[in-house]
Amino acid sequence: MNRSRRRNCNTVNAASLARWIVMTAFVALAGLAYVYLTLQLYHLGERRKAVENELASLRTQNDIAAAQIAALTSRSALQRRLKEGYLKMIPVSESKIVRLTIPPRSSDEEAVQPVANPLAQHESK
């Protein structure tokens, strides 16, 4: 009886078991890694979208600011402000204009530049 019971018992093949455990663990890890990486992919996608939105928002703000600058510094706007008295500009009179008649000399030459406006020359004397 005892003999036959002993015969019916199979011995555990430790190496095979270990192999299966490793394989199962590997598959499980691979699965987990897949899930983790997939989640990472989604997460990075969301971050990418958020950065894109932020970039678009900054670009929009920049464009709005540029448009406002263009509107506020346009010639029409400046002329309007001039008429309203916010800017004060006085036309330069002809006698105050000095015209250089020859090409400008190099800066190391300490010479008086001749001018073509006799009125200006006269006034400076």
Binding site: A56, T60, D63, A67, A70, A71, T73, S74, R75, S76, A77
Partner: peptide, 13 residues
Amino acid sequence: EHDATRLYPNGSM
């Protein structure tokens, strides 16, 4: 959708 419209800073000029 992001879009843009035209702005003419000088108005009628």
